[in-house]
Each structure stands twice: as structure tokens, then as C-alpha cells.
Amino acid sequence: MRVLIAPDKFAGTLTAVQAAEAIARGWGRRSPDDELDLAPMSDGGPGFVDVLHAALGGDLHAVTVAGPHGSPTPATLLVVDDVAYVESAQACGLHLTHGEGVETATSLGVGELVAAAVDAGARRIVVGLGGSGTNDAGAGLLAALGATSDVALDAGPLALAELTTLDLAPARALVAGTRIVVASDVDSPLAGLFGATKTFGPQKGLPEDRLAAVDGLLEDFAAVADRRLALAKGAGAAGGLGYALMLLGGERRPGIGLVSDAVGLAERARAADVVLTGEGAFDFSSRSGKVPYGVAETAAEALRPCVALAGRVLVGSREMRALGVEAAYSMVELVGEERALGQPAEALADLAERVARTWSRE
């Protein structure tokens, strides 16, 4: 029997690569003769570069960039032929802010990564967005690439309060001739009720009583930069990094679709008898461009069943079917929360072994 293993990261505990290996280890204990095909996945957020490096090879370039509050932060640029892959979370991820100081956090380091990609000779730069701790409309990124203004662009959204001028010409000149692809699972516009601030601000530590004010700062920024583009799907991704990249001519693509194409997921699903996916919390928000939904869609097109393994399963059978998943299994239900969090790889392997009892033909 052939089994395709295509999980996302289990946020805070396992990378996608580690999750795939743990599932394979557990499944193999129960069904050692099954053929296991590991295809760790990403939607553009944390783990984006690792997943693509595992699938595509290429050269990893170590870069030190400015973190969200200015501290030197290590990051990695993946270069495959003339294509560079950048993971924004490495430079401005939520794990670097710990949910604090979002009003002064900057995306400057992401711009430095893009500049490093240009210096490396990339003709195409794919920027994975997701898991950010910033909400500055990408002003910091633009500053790193040469944009200028009458206010500091690299000091977070709070510094944008008095902005009246913005010159993007130097930044656009720097990336001229380079195709920019925005890999994101988020459809939000930059501002408004469903924009970056009101949708994702609270999870980044922005207090409820500051949401309207910070959202207004992003609206004011857009009024100077490009109000129409601020309404585009994905402009609100990663606190507005999607918007900044679109200002430079970036073209948005769903992150899960881009990674699926890169790893040849459709062909690998057709060669499998069952497809396994997973993430830390499997809930109905998984439908919004998340890995399990994207993998399930690919499995359905290949007429193969898709099974999810997760830290927690927060949907019922009806919602599960709507997501295209035949069955979902929870680590917490099997081994308890303490072990699921304290020994995630072992717990996931145990869960995979249990799932194999039902889904393997052995």
C-alpha cells in the first residue's frame, strides 16, 4: 500500500518535516511493508523555506537581518537556479515579538531578505507570508529597499501617524526586472473590518481598544501609497506585507498551491492509496487556504481518501466532510494534553500507528 504523508507544521511543537517523519515512523511500526512518501507542506508561513529546500534542493544562504524590534536576527534564503524563496516569519515572526510591541514592530528585516535575494541574482523572488508579529503595512520592508518618507518607515505603525509623502521609486528600481510572488493563505484587504489589524491584531498582542486607531494608521498609509491596491485580496497578509509587495508589482498566489506545485503533490497523490495530512489544530478555519484543506482538495481530485492527524480536532463529522477529509484523529484525545505538548513527536508517531490499524491494508 502506498501512503502519501503531507502535513503542515504543528505550531510551537513540530516543523512540517518533523511531523512527516513522526507520522512515517509510527505508521511504519504498524505496517512496515507500506510504501511511505513524505511530502511536508507549508502555506507560506513558518517552515516555508525548510519545506521547499527538502523538496527542491538548492542553496541555503545564511543572512543576518533586523528583527521586529531591531535585534540582529538569523535568517535563511533559499536559492534554486534563478529563483529565491524568502520566509517572512524568519525576520518578523510572532515568535520574535512574543505578542508584545506590535505598534513599534517593523518588517524591515523582510525587506533586507528581499534585498539579499536581489543581490544573489534572483530573477524571481517568492515571499512566503504567515505567522508575522508585525502590523506596519510593510512600511519597514519598503524602507529596507530604499523607499523614503517624511516619517520613519522602519519603526512600526505608530510612526506612520504623521505621514504625508512616500517615494517608492528607489524600491521599485531595486527590484526592477525581478518578478515578485506573494505566497499567502490570507485573503484579507489591508484595512477595514476584515483587514490586517482587526482580523489578526489581537493574536499579535494588540489591545482591543487600539484596533481602530492602528487600523486608521494603515488606512492613512494607503491613502498616500495606493488606496485601490489596499482593497486587493491578500493585501492584509502578514500585517500588510502583502500590500507592500503588491506596491512593488508583486503577484499574489495562494501559498498552499505554490508549495503543492513545487513538490508535485497532485502526481504523488495519484500514485498513493491514501493521503495523510495534519496540523496542530484542525478546525474550520483550515478552509481558508490552510494546508489540510489544500491537501484534501488535491486528494479529492486524485480520487483518494484524505485523513487528518492533528494535535486537536475541533470540527465535527459534517464540517470534516466539508473540508474534504474522511476522518480526523487527535493526539490530545489519544495521549492527553501533557504528553501531546511535552513529547509531540512520540505522541504523533503513536497516533499514526493507531490510524494505520484502520487505514492500512496490512
Rank of each mutant, 00 (worst) to 15 (best):
R123Q: 07
A143D: 07
D167A: 00
C92F: 10
A144W: 12
A116M: 01
A143N: 09
A191W: 13
G133Y: 06
D154F: 06
G156H: 09
R124G: 00
L113S: 08
T165G: 05
A122I: 02
A144I: 14
C92W: 11
A147Q: 13
G156C: 10
C92R: 12
V102W: 06
G156A: 03
D167N: 12
L96T: 13
P157G: 02
L145M: 14
A120H: 11
V151K: 07
S188C: 10
L113I: 01
L108Y: 10
V175L: 00
V126C: 15
I180Y: 04
V114Y: 07
A137K: 07
E100F: 08
A183M: 04
T164W: 00
V181W: 05
T148D: 02
G111H: 13
G131K: 01
L94D: 07
A169W: 12
L145K: 13
V110C: 13
R124K: 09
L142N: 14
A171W: 12
E112P: 13
G133I: 04
V186A: 10
L153R: 03
D187S: 02
G156L: 12
L158C: 11
L166R: 13
A91P: 15
D119Q: 15
S188F: 00
S132A: 09
R179T: 11
T97N: 03
L96N: 11
G121F: 00
V175W: 06
I180F: 09
L145F: 15
R172V: 05
A155F: 01
L190G: 00
I125N: 04
R123A: 06
S184F: 02
D119S: 15
A152W: 02
R179F: 07
P157E: 06
T165F: 01
A171T: 06
P170G: 08
T97W: 05
L163T: 11
A155C: 12
D185A: 06
G109L: 12
V182H: 04
A105S: 03
S188Q: 04
Q90I: 05
S107T: 15
G101W: 02
D185H: 06
P157I: 04
V118N: 04
V127E: 06
A161V: 15
I180H: 01
A91G: 14
A143I: 06
A117T: 05
L108M: 09
V151F: 04
G138E: 14
L142F: 14
A191Y: 13
D150E: 00
S149Q: 06
T104F: 12
D150C: 00
L96H: 12
V182W: 00
S149G: 05
G146R: 11
T164Q: 12
V127R: 00
A116P: 07
Q90W: 08
P189H: 05
T165H: 05
G138K: 11
E100T: 14
L145Q: 10
A152M: 04
G109K: 05
A89W: 02
L160N: 10
G101D: 07
A89P: 03
V186F: 03
D150F: 02
L174R: 04
S188A: 10
E162C: 12
L142G: 13
L190E: 02
L166T: 14
T165V: 10
T134A: 07
D136H: 09
A115N: 11
G133C: 02
A183W: 08
A139S: 14
D187L: 09
V118R: 00
E162I: 13
I125H: 01
G133K: 03
L174V: 01
A105V: 09
L141F: 11
L160I: 14
L141K: 08
A105Q: 09
V114M: 10
A144M: 13
S184Q: 04
